[in-house]
Design a protein around this nucleic acid. Structure first.
Lengths: 203, 203
DNA sequence: CACATTAACTACCGCTCGGTAGTAAAACGT
DNA sequence: ACGTTTTACTACCGAGCGGTAGTTAATGTG
């Protein structure tokens, strides 16, 4: 990789590129792509408009970079969460318990940026659809891993595992929508309880 | 109700108000609120801009009317579907089977207008959030009815029924997102299969 | 046939949008 | 110190946005 060892032949940046991308990510996350104007991005970051353009390109290109970044970060966080949850059915339950905590406040209440964007831009901006597809595929793979390791050892019930994975995946998407739709803590709790009850029948 | 018997004292409309609202609904449905411009609405309906404004008010007011209309229509369709599905667990399975057919083509592939809008406008347009909440509440009630009647007669397992309702509700939201996210027929089919397998354990 | 009323249509408004040219200001290597 | 390179900043652009005033064309009522 270049970049870190690039000799700077000229004036250096006054802002931290990563920090600015983080700021802009939360803006897009909260308000959506089309509801976020360049002026909003300028205000939130403190970086002048032309600098944003010269650094990140057009709004579309910037958003693509942000989605890419988000995708990597999210999958990393997700893997950590799964590892932290531990093995077996209890691991799945622990994973759901962690979700419960995250979704009530902070960035959790905005749902998943990729899922939101995929829904918002579907049928208008064809280029971004691929991010959503890629994300769902990657998420599904990891979910399958989490569920597979909770099956009785030695068994190869591929069909059962796949179906549970699809159900769990769809559940997480629905939960995303519930949260972003403005559900309160009680409603979120109830929904997670319901899934935990279902997972309990998998023992 | 007035309206039908209103004596027209002046020039009558050249367009059918309901038909135009139907046209505009599909536009908002497919492209979302903010990606649909007044010019788009004019083009799609053939009605001049000023006529749209004098008839339906501003874009926000028009959209509110459309959401209201959609809410009523949808709940009606949903009730019909449930009735058509029949009683018992088999009724739930039949209901899911009908979903399978609807989601692949036509308006089904755009998901639910209310759910989409609730997600799109969350955190930017506070007024519209209520539609989403109201819709989820109404949908949940009817879903509960569908599931309640499939429980063994005489039992009053409120907790179980509620949890199954929440799971089913969340499943439908997730399915909505899957469809709108650009999933193909196979993926949709797999997801519905997964839910049907779960429902089968409820017998 | 006037007259009031309502709708259709044209032309236009101010504003915000995403995007850019052109200039001033720093850092570098030599 | 010098020239080069890169960034920061100001000012601005054309286009599209939602929304409206004002005029013309139909209709019903007397």
């Amino acid at each position: 990789m270049s970049g870190t060892n690039m000799r700077s032949r000229g004036r250096p940046r006054l802002f931290d590129e990563d920090a600015v991308l983080d700021e802009l990510t939360t803006l897009f996350w909260r308000k959506g792509y089309s509801q976020t104007s360049m002026a909003d991005l300028v205000d939130a970051s403190g970086v002048h408009k032309s600098s944003l353009y010269s650094t990140f390109g057009t709004k579309e290109e910037l958003f693509a970079k942000i989605l890419q970044r988000y995708l990597v970060n999210r999958m990393g966080m997700f893997s950590e969460l799964v590892e932290q949850a531990g093995p077996g059915i209890d691991g799945i339950q622990a994973f759901l318990e962690m979700l419960r905590g995250d979704l009530v406040s902070g960035t959790g209440q905005w749902g998943c940026l990729l899922v939101n964007s995929s829904s918002e831009l579907s049928g208008t901006a064809p280029g971004f659809e691929d991010f959503g597809v890629a994300f769902r595929k990657a998420l599904r793979e990891r979910l399958r891993g989490l569920i597979r390791q909770a099956e009785p050892e030695g068994t190869a019930r591929t069909r059962v595992t796949d179906q549970r994975t699809d159900l769990f995946m769809t559940f997480m998407l629905g939960l995303n929508l519930t949260v972003r739709g403005g559900a309160d803590e009680n409603e979120i709790g109830r929904v997670i309880d319901a899934m935990q009850a279902t997972v309990d029948t998998w023992r």
